[in-house]
Design a binder for these strands. Structure first.
Length: 566
RNA sequence: UGACCGAUGGUGUAACGGCAGCACUACAGAUUUUGGUUCUGUCUGUCUAGGUUCGAAUCCUGGUCGGUCAACCA
């Protein structure tokens, strides 16, 4: 007995508030200790990193406590929803590594049941058909400080409301002419209790139910009931739904339901610096051509992150580190970047690629000679295999790796300086050739044959450079991605300013670089690390037979640092 | 100035009446065939005023600050 308590206390120390709630419920035998959560996206856009947090939470909780998670599409507003979004969402959830309880569910599966529930409430005199206009209803609701006024239709006969509702369903009315309202309390301090709308008329084609319905339930009249029908135990949503909870409970109470009682809990949604997270705004970026689609690698969408080289594990880790609480937060993107670096560092194959090439010629290396030098594919992996890298007299190195007049702490190549070429020899720079504009076109060096990689040598160098053999190099089209926004809080700019004014015009650059032949054979491995340049991944796109890489410029990488130093 | 939610380093998040801890960031050092990785260290924190208590980040009261709510969106 004592031992159990101690264990509880020990594990408790690291539990978030939702885990505490669930453990309490299990301990108290609530729902026989069953846990069934749900992830309920509206299919009106692609999932973003904020949804990923919710997914990890809902699925993670169920996994931790031996439960299941439903995937339910909250498809109650046909004008905004589509099958394209449904499919994209399913793909993203699967890609993140989670399995929902089959089958996939839809709020629209319950339209008939909801309709019957509505009849029940009308008969109980807890709902009525109102024929005020949207504007009148809104006005009648009052303000948070002042009570609203009751609708003149509020106390109409039950039979009348029943008939009206049927007429609504039978398309006897145009949009806006009738709504079904719950009869609660027009003076409630909670605006959502002032006779909220349950059904509205929409003569719209639904992506699943087609034209079967012309009345559609509102969120509040669909969500809790869907939870109940499915037997959801813990219905977890974001903080802005806190005021809805009272209504959520009211519907369930007044329906006199006797099954598993779902409970709503709220957590703070994710906010990220330099990132817009609202679906509405992301849709604008897509529609107005700021990006090339929902899955543009600069987008904070799950599909965008995927194309950018993020792994499912890194996103799950991020969700874990971000934590769960009820206070507003603004997470630094550097945490997300840390998570992908941490993952890729352990798993990503390495290769050398030169993005901004300048030719380096080793004058004392025999013309026409080629050597195959062994290189480690992944130094973090003890079992890593080796690849052979061709070496010859003419190489490309990074333009930034050479400075004619180096500052004091510059460890790389400069006139008279010595550096090691990774996996190869130590070289010394003797001279440079420039074109008429003063741009360096060739760097001439001497190599020391007795410094070949693996040999003992007394020569000490501070710098090591990556390189590719000019004649063997594979040409690669490289896409460099920077942050989409220039400001930390694009969601929160000053009044009168548009978040789109802060889109970074340089967020995408396409350049041609040169890579080892190895990268060609390693296709289509996901997640590359290029020596000293940073992490790359292969994009799905491949045009003109060229290799396309995503470069995550915002990831920590010394290449960018050097750029800043100069 | 209605109701509700919240307030712990630059950023997140723990501590549930008993030593304010962890991670990210930043900076410094060590290692390094890339300035990466790895390792070590440093800086910085309980919104405020009272109260309860041997003892308060934690409980109570007032204040301050931030957020949410008046769609026939979700």
């Amino acid at each position: 007995m004592e031992k159990v308590d101690m264990n509880v206390n020990e594990t408790r120390a690291s539990l978030n508030f939702l885990e505490q709630i669930i453990e309490n419920d299990i301990r108290n035998g609530v729902n026989n200790g069953q846990v069934l959560t749900r992830f309920p996206p509206e299919p009106n856009g692609y999932l973003h990193i904020g949804h990923a947090k919710s997914i990890c939470l809902n699925f993670g909780l169920a996994i931790k406590y031996g439960g299941k998670t439903n995937l339910r599409f909250d498809d109650t507003n046909p004008t905004k929803e589509s099958t394209e979004y449904v499919n994209a969402i399913m793909e993203d959830v699967k890609w993140l590594g989670f399995q929902w309880q089959e089958p996939v569910l839809y709020a629209s599966d319950y339209f008939e049941q909801l309709y019957q529930y509505a009849i029940y409430l009308i008969k109980k005199e807890k709902a009525y058909v109102c024929q005020m206009s949207a504007e009148e209803i809104s006005k009648g609701r009052g303000t948070p400080q002042t009570p609203g006024v009751e609708s003149p239709w509020r106390n109409r006969a039950v039979e009348e409301s029943l008939e009206e509702l049927e007429k609504m369903r039978n398309a006897d009315y145009r949009e806006g002419e009738r709504v079904l309202r719950a009869k609660i309390d027009m003076a409630s301090p909670n605006m959502w209790m002032r006779d909220p709308v349950m059904y509205r008329i929409m003569h719209a084609h639904h992506h699943r139910t087609g034209d079967a319905w012309c009345i559609y339930p509102m969120y509040d009249w669909a969500h809790g009931q869907s939870d109940y029908i499915e037997g959801i135990t813990h219905s977890i949503c974001t903080l802005e739904f806190v005021p809805h909870r009272q209504l959520y409970d009211w519907f369930i109470d007044n329906l006199d339901l006797t099954g598993i009682r779902p409970r709503q809990y709220e957590f703070a949604r994710l906010n990220l610096t330099y990132t817009v997270m609202s679906k509405r705004k992301l849709l604008q970026l897509v529609e107005e051509g700021f990006v090339n689609g929902w899955d543009d690698p600069r987008m904070p969408t799950v599909s965008g992150l995927r194309r950018r080289g993020y792994t499912p594990a890194s996103i799950r880790e991020f969700a874990e580190r971000v934590g769960v609480a009820k206070r507003e937060n603004l997470i630094d993107v550097s945490l997300l970047e840390f998570c992908i670096r941490e993952d890729l560092n352990k798993t990503a194959p390495r290769a050398m690629v030169v993005i901004d090439p300048v030719k380096l010629i080793i004058d004392n290396y025999p013309e026409g000679q080629t050597e195959e030098l062994p290189a480690v594919i992944n130094p973090e992996d003890p079992d890593s295999e080796k690849r052979m890298v061709p070496f010859s007299r003419e190489l490309y190195i990074e333009r930034d790796d050479f400075m004619e007049e180096p500052p004091k702490k510059f460890f790389r190549l400069a006139p008279g300086a010595e550096v090691r070429l990774k996996y190869a020899y130590i070289i010394r720079c003797d001279s440079v050739v420039k074109d008429k504009n003063g741009t360096i076109t060739e760097i001439h060096c001497t190599y020391f044959p007795d410094t070949k990689s693996g040999m003992e040598t007394t020569r000490k160098v501070k710098g090591t450079l990556h390189w590719v053999s000019a004649q063997h190099a594979v040409e690669a089209e490289v896409r460099l991605y920077d942050r989409l926004f220039r400001v930390p809080e694009p969601d929160n700019v000053e009044e009168g300013q548009d978040f789109k004014d802060f889109v970074n015009p340089d967020s995408l650059k396409v350049v041609t670089g040169y890579g080892e032949p190895f990268i060609k054979s390693a296709l289509p491995a996901q997640g590359f690390q290029f020596e000293r340049i940073g992490y790359f991944s292969l994009d799905k796109d491949s045009t003109n037979g060229k290799l396309i890489f995503n470069r995550t410029v915002t990831l920590k990488d010394s290449w960018a640092k050097v750029g800043n130093q100069c």
